[in-house]
């Protein structure tokens, strides 16, 4: 009798600890929406919301790739630099006379290759992902600077800039790309064999290996995904600005990691939430937008965003820690 009661309690606690980070995010988001719409009449207009979605789409695209990497127990610091490198490659290809579609494809392949380099070195040589991706970050940034000679490339055909400023009904391509990738990522992570193995890699790599699964293959695919996501981010940035900047995407890796962790994906690996990542990206986008609307100086914006990320992560961590302690009793 007593055993069953305990079981029920465990289940309830389990459920709340699982959903808690997302609930917290949505709560914070609601509070922000209310505060901002009370203080500014501009906030809750379609134009402004569209602005927020548009800006967040870049972060969402990169953070989705990062969700897979962090769920698998890794980290990818190279995404910002790979985004810049891919954008630069697309631009250089178009400058060389290649048509937009093929140039984009080429840029995505470059992103995938950088991801494959990350994954192969991490998996085969068993080197810490932090160090490997740090190296690839520097390498990609260097290549982007070499290809452009440090000077931005600008002026692209419309077929290309459409990816940044085009219109499809009330939406634009980056938003729809982000939405499409969100659904795809959620399905793949939660329902496909690859998603199961990604989470198992983060939970207990050795268990997966002993079950006869090739962990090298899946690890490399995870990093390739992140590289391609970064390249798609590069496409969006380059097309939006109509300029390929070798220094584009600066610190984008930090924003992605912050969003992923804020969304409830465990840095220890094994637990990943696509919905959480996207919610966190939108929350950060809303925050940046709100701080601008409230005309808070940009130096303070950095500070405020940092404090909010820290607070959210600490609260979520303390909460889940308490839950675990409770269950173990």
């Amino acid at each position: 009798m007593q055993k069953y009661v305990q079981t029920d309690l465990t289940k309830i606690k389990l459920l709340t600890s699982h959903i808690f980070p997302q609930l917290l995010l949505i709560l914070v988001m609601l509070i922000m929406v209310i505060l901002l719409s009370v203080t500014s009449p501009f906030f809750l207009t379609w134009d402004n919301l569209r602005n927020i979605f548009d800006h967040s789409s870049l972060y969402i695209i990169l953070a989705l790739g990062m969700t897979f990497v962090i769920s698998s127990g890794g980290i990818d610091l190279s995404v910002g630099a790979v985004a810049a490198l891919s954008g630069v490659c697309m631009a250089a290809a178009m400058q060389g006379g290649l048509e937009a579609g093929l140039s984009i494809l080429g840029g995505l392949i470059v992103g995938g290759l950088m991801g494959a380099a990350n994954g192969s070195i991490i998996s085969f040589l068993k080197i810490n992902p932090f160090i490997v991706t740090l190296g690839v970050m520097s390498l990609s940034r260097g290549l982007a600077l070499i290809i452009t000679g440090g000077i931005p490339i600008y002026g692209f055909p419309r077929d290309f800039t459409w990816w940044g400023n085009g219109h499809i009904g009330p939406f634009n391509p980056p938003m729809l790309l982000a939405a499409f990738l969100t659904v795809l990522a959620a399905v793949v992570l939660n329902m496909s064999r690859f998603g199961y193995y990604t989470l198992a890699l983060g939970g207990n790599e050795e268990a997966l290996r002993r079950s006869g699964v090739s962990i090298h293959l899946y690890k490399i695919i995870v990093y390739i995904l992140s590289g391609v996501a970064a390249a798609l981010g590069g496409l969006v940035v380059t097309a939006r600005l109509n300029t390929a900047e070798p220094l584009a995407g600066w610190m984008l890796e930090m924003d992605s990691i912050a969003a992923v962790v804020l969304g409830g994906t465990s840095m220890k690996g094994g637990k990943g939430s696509v919905a959480g990542t996207v919610t966190a990206c939108l929350l950060l986008g809303m925050l940046r937008n709100g701080l601008v609307i409230l005309s808070i100086p940009s130096y303070y914006q950095q500070l405020v965003i940092g404090i909010i990320i820290l607070a959210a992560v600490i609260i979520a961590e303390v909460r889940s820690g308490k839950n675990l302690a409770f269950i173990n009793k």
């Binding site: 329902m191 207990n204 268990a207 997966l208 002993r210 079950s211």
Partner: peptide, 26 residues
């Protein structure tokens, strides 16, 4: 035991041989 602690019981029992439907979905 080589169990993946954060995954559920069924996922652990089928680790490495998950049945598929429509050749994609677990």
């Amino acid at each position: 035991l080589a169990l993946v602690d954060c995954r559920d019981v069924a996922s652990n029992i089928f680790l490495g041989r998950e049945p598929l439907k429509a050749r994609f979905f677990v």
